Amino acid sequence: MFTVKKADYVFWAFMFLMTLLQLSDDLSFLGGVLFSLAITLTLRIHVRYVINRLAKRYLNSESSIKFILYALFASVITAVILTFEGCLIVGAIPSERLVMPNDMLSLFFGMLMVSILISGGSYSIELFKQNVESEKLHQELKNSVLENEIDNLRTQLSPHFTFNILNNLQFLIRKDKEEALELLSRYSKILQYYVYESQNKWIKLDDEISFLKHYFELEKDRSGEDLEISFQCNIAENHLMIIPFLLSTFIENAFKHVSDFADKTNYIHLHIYLENENNLFLKIENTANSASDNKKTKGVGLKYVKKRLDLSYPGNYSLDIKREENKYRAELQINLNT
């Protein structure tokens, strides 16, 4: 992995090579290498122990003028040091020509420009790094808030589901023993699945579909023969994951608000299927007494399922709920690859 530390080494190695290339016409190879090393090391100290500290101190403050003044002053000092280093290196090598005052002045201004450019570049890099860190922190905080909200929704769904289970126990008591035992066995499977899987953030889609089949059959037996019920499931074996108990809410809602017309056929039709390997579709339709009554009796389930979809599949789902006269229809599509 190309880390920030490696990038720093690469930059200063590049700085050394570029400086050596620039000095090759005026100095011998030995003089060029020594002076390039002096320039590179001095500028690195200038950036690391002066400019970076100034940047961190004044980056978020309104005193940007102070940073500019301090950075200019530090650049002048660094340019003076580099000029003297150049004179010492040239003077120490007999083969180099004598340094004249005009050469020192020209060298000073050249080193000053380099110091200022390096200082400005370092400030920009520190500003960029802080923006990246700030964005990362903001995203982590956002994710933490989302996770807390999702956990909160799961805890709210828990008593809601349990309430529906306990409410249905009245039906079991009225049944004969054999059928009651069969229904209790189904309840135990559902509750066992619910207790263990509700703690997970993601579960296998196959497990969720299996749970839906048990739950649908249970509600079908409880509803009696006056209700026309169909469940189509066209999902091959797969490795897709989904948030737990998302789909069962629509089934709960359908059985809870299905109509009780004496002169009409009451029905619940459910169809679940996959398209393009990862697009899950759920379509459920049921008769309802009226659009206005259905709105009045609407429970908390659909409100929570919309929040969970927004948090877990932002921008990757569509939910269409239509309430018509004597009819209620919900169509859900989710991209499960996200």
Rank of each mutant, 00 (worst) to 15 (best):
I272R: 06
N337F: 00
S290Q: 08
S115E: 00
L311A: 13
L166T: 04
I81G: 05
C87T: 09
I173Q: 07
F250L: 12
R329D: 09
L274T: 06
I39D: 01
S115A: 15
E96D: 09
T297I: 10
V258H: 13
S63D: 12
A79C: 04
E252M: 03
F35E: 08
Q192K: 15
Y215Q: 02
T155R: 15
S124Q: 05
G110Q: 05
Y49V: 04
Y193S: 12
F171T: 15
E126Y: 00
S61L: 10
K6S: 07
E208A: 02
R53N: 10
L302F: 01
E126Q: 07
D151N: 15
F245I: 02
N266E: 06
L332W: 13
L88T: 10
R174A: 10
L98W: 00
N234D: 13
K306T: 08
G120I: 09
L146Y: 15
K175H: 03
F35D: 06
V76D: 00
K6G: 01
E325K: 15
L127A: 08
Q130V: 00
R53Y: 10
N52Q: 11
E96V: 06
L23H: 08
Q333K: 15
L240Y: 07
Y58E: 04
A291D: 11
L270P: 02
I118M: 11
S63W: 10
R154W: 06
L153A: 07
D26G: 03
L311R: 06
V4Q: 09
S318V: 07
Y304H: 14
Q22I: 13
